[in-house]
Design a protein around this nucleic acid. Sequence first.
DNA 1: GAGTGGTCTAGACCACCCT
DNA 2: GGGTGGTCTAGACCACTCC
Lengths: 281, 281
Amino acid sequence: MIVASNWRLSYGALERICYKHRSSWETLIPMNKISLPNNGSSLHEIVREEISRRIAAGVYKPGDAITSTAQLVAEFGVSSTTVKRALRDLRCAGLLTSMPGKGTFVKHRCRFIQELDVCMSSSLDNARWLDFQTKIELVSISRERVSNSTLSIFDPQDKVLVCIRKVIYADEVPIMYDSSFLPVNISDEIIDEFSECFIIDALRRHNVDVKDISLIIDSAPASREAQQVFQAPNGYPTLRRLYKSNNSTLSVFGVVESPFDRLACRIGFVSSQFSKIDKKK
Amino acid sequence: MIVASNWRLSYGALERICYKHRSSWETLIPMNKISLPNNGSSLHEIVREEISRRIAAGVYKPGDAITSTAQLVAEFGVSSTTVKRALRDLRCAGLLTSMPGKGTFVKHRCRFIQELDVCMSSSLDNARWLDFQTKIELVSISRERVSNSTLSIFDPQDKVLVCIRKVIYADEVPIMYDSSFLPVNISDEIIDEFSECFIIDALRRHNVDVKDISLIIDSAPASREAQQVFQAPNGYPTLRRLYKSNNSTLSVFGVVESPFDRLACRIGFVSSQFSKIDKKK
DNA sequence: GAGTGGTCTAGACCACCCT
DNA sequence: GGGTGGTCTAGACCACTCC
């Protein structure tokens, strides 16, 4: 894994925003039908873009609290509802986090890039090589039917399976939420194994060839569990990797969910990477 | 490309929701401090989940209009603001679309899966093989500096480049928004070429090896342009593919953006594909 | 107790569509 | 003209934090 610091959202080029105090708007705009100064944007969009601009310009710095809602209401001359709508949208864009009773803060930007080269070297061991403090936290082990309809793409056939849910941290930041499903007749040792390490590492120990793994990458609004794990608001975009091992000896499938601003995948096609890994083994 | 029909959001298992008319709440709940029937959820969440449940249950069917906002207000006994908030969240979850003056409609579900095997066979030709009506629509050709900060990962060095933007349709549905950057000294023929076909197809014609292509897959809220192209609301999750050709003869980089509910990527590691391509060459 | 963010209300106005 | 969704207001209440 590689860290991409100073990575920024492509939230759209920031426009120069002009805003006026509400009082002057009320007297000027609706009466005289003058062309609106907001370029067709609504008020909450103007507020949103202005705050977004201030973050980009460094007026509000990562980790700092921004101006409080009440003050923004006074400053922009709009209602509190409008300011709160703008702040909520910026939270969904990954720019802000809010803590009731404390304030609204600019998020730190730090995204991890997971290598997905053809030999699937993206294991926890890999991350350790690059000096990341990685940690795996077991959330639950349960027996259940697959209710996540996304996984129906792997045809789970409505059987009861063992489900292992865990959270993977990098430098104390939660970056992955993994739900893996195993057959119920699996041994306890294998369950323990899957609870403690990356899926890829676990599969390797059982000599599962990477070529037997099917991988689907997609995006989706954060699931309910992911919202809790990552403290993300409803609708927060996530990057998902749906995986399935087609190996006959060990059948596993599942999904890894990551906040869009915490993880990206890189696919390398460089042939030299093959030999590098081979030599180590 | 393969179509995954009947694909569903993993919006979270739908809970059984109980709601009461506002009037009865006011008299019962706040006065007697009875445990709330909403399991700690707020009103807009209850409304959201109930409408979500109805869509999943087929009460509201794809393409149909759901109950109007005014009627929902009466039915749930909440304010219009609350219902509208719930509907907006469901729009961001990809379940609904609204048309002012007409109504709110349940979206059709149909997602395309783009194959990203090691030989990068995901070209427009591939799509044609599978009987999709694919179409490419040129949006613009311009000279500009790279303002999209996501692409700074490819180190564009603040030079003026030729930017070609286009929309790719499958079965009349826009599924990709591509922005590619080429050097300014490139010939008009090559610009025309890139305007008319998939990036991969264009690169192949110039004998660019797939091993020279760097690919990063991530997720992000829809850019301003993507919002327009896909008629997606602000904050709509998208799947992005950032690509760069490292070949010395033809330097290209760019980004393809797709709505999360329209496209997923599959990575195949089947070794037979290796040999197949090798034999062809 | 003052300040914070989160939720909610009961209105209002607008642009739009259909009849 | 009646219905639709989108935006906005000026309040209110709550849980929370910090002093």
